[in-house]
Amino acid sequence: MTALAGRDRTGEGQVVDLALIEPILTALGPQPTWYDQLGHVQPRTGNRSQNNAPRGTYLTADGTWVAVSTSAQSIAERVMVLVGRPDLIDAPWFATGEDRARHADVLDEAVGGWIARHTRADVLAAFEKAEAAVAPIQDVRDVMTDPQYQALNTITTVDDPELGPLRMQNVLFRLSGTPGAIRWAGRPHGADTEEVLTELGLTPADLAGLRAEGAL
């Protein structure tokens, strides 16, 4: 969009070069700055954060996973009340996210233990009632039935001559004027061979000969 706006002003286009690795790098947050200014290299923490706790992924009683993040002191306190460990709130290290992160084992045991005794539906309902951030970790089965994905038509159905109705990811963005759609899942193997070889100068006799030899 920026390049197009610039073209409108200057009349000149430009190449937009974006590697997939670059937006992924932003997931590291301030780590490049930490290293530049402090020489700090963050060790591997799995699903944990060095800045806050409790925060991670937890297994529910019905064998599914949820992600929990306590982004503020008040939320962390509500979660401790929810999981039956209000006593931890009075611990001197509970006062800041960084200090809580240093005691993640204790907090994970409390939160993870409570979640392990409840189904995902009950966990989501309880955390929502407590106004604490939680989300189900979806596998592809969940994606295919998720009401939000269904409302967005993120997974669409395409008719395929060989496989019949075929569900796949839809166009990744929606435009009001030119919404776009997937017309086919892919041409059958060899569907355009004759046309391509004819454009290259092969005659019907040449093609017949190649077929007889098993080359086509």
Rank of each mutant, 00 (worst) to 15 (best):
T2Y: 11
L4F: 13
L4A: 11
R7Y: 12
R9I: 04
T10D: 14
T10V: 13
T10Q: 13
G11R: 13
E12F: 08
Q14H: 07
D17W: 00
P23Y: 01
P23N: 05
P23A: 02
I24D: 01
T26A: 05
T26N: 02
G29F: 00
P30L: 08
P32F: 05
P32H: 10
Y35M: 05
Y35E: 07
D36W: 03
D36E: 10
V41K: 05
Q42P: 06
P43W: 04
G46I: 04
N47P: 08
N47T: 15
R48E: 09
R48C: 07
S49G: 07
Q50D: 06
A53W: 02
R55T: 03
R55N: 03
R55S: 03
T57G: 12
T57L: 09
Y58A: 07
Y58L: 13
L59Y: 04
T60A: 09
D62C: 05
V66K: 01
V66R: 02
A67N: 08
V68M: 01
S69E: 08
S69G: 12
S69R: 08
Q73P: 07
I75M: 03
A76F: 00
V79G: 03
G84T: 04
R85W: 08
L88I: 04
A91T: 02
W93P: 01
F94L: 00
G97V: 01
R100N: 01
A101N: 01
A101D: 00
R102V: 04
R102D: 05
H103M: 03
A104V: 11
W114Y: 13
I115G: 02
I115Y: 05
H118A: 14
R120F: 06
D122Q: 11
D122N: 11
D122F: 09
L124E: 06
A126L: 11
A126I: 12
F127L: 04
K129N: 15
A132H: 04
A133N: 11
P136M: 06
Q138T: 09
Q138R: 12
D139K: 10
D139R: 12
R141H: 10
V143I: 15
V143L: 14
D146G: 06
Y149M: 14
Q150G: 14
L152W: 05
L152F: 03
N153P: 08
V158G: 06
D160L: 10
E162L: 12
L163P: 04
P165W: 12
L166Q: 11
L166P: 04
R167K: 14
S176H: 14
G177A: 10
T178F: 14
G180Y: 06
G180K: 12
G180F: 12
A181S: 12
I182L: 15
I182G: 14
I182T: 15
I182E: 08
W184Y: 11
W184G: 07
A185N: 11
G186Y: 12
G186L: 11
G186F: 13
P188M: 10
H189N: 11
G190Q: 12
G190R: 13
A191E: 14
T193D: 12
E195W: 08
L197E: 06
L197R: 05
L202E: 03
L207T: 07
L210H: 07
A212R: 14
A215S: 15
L216E: 09
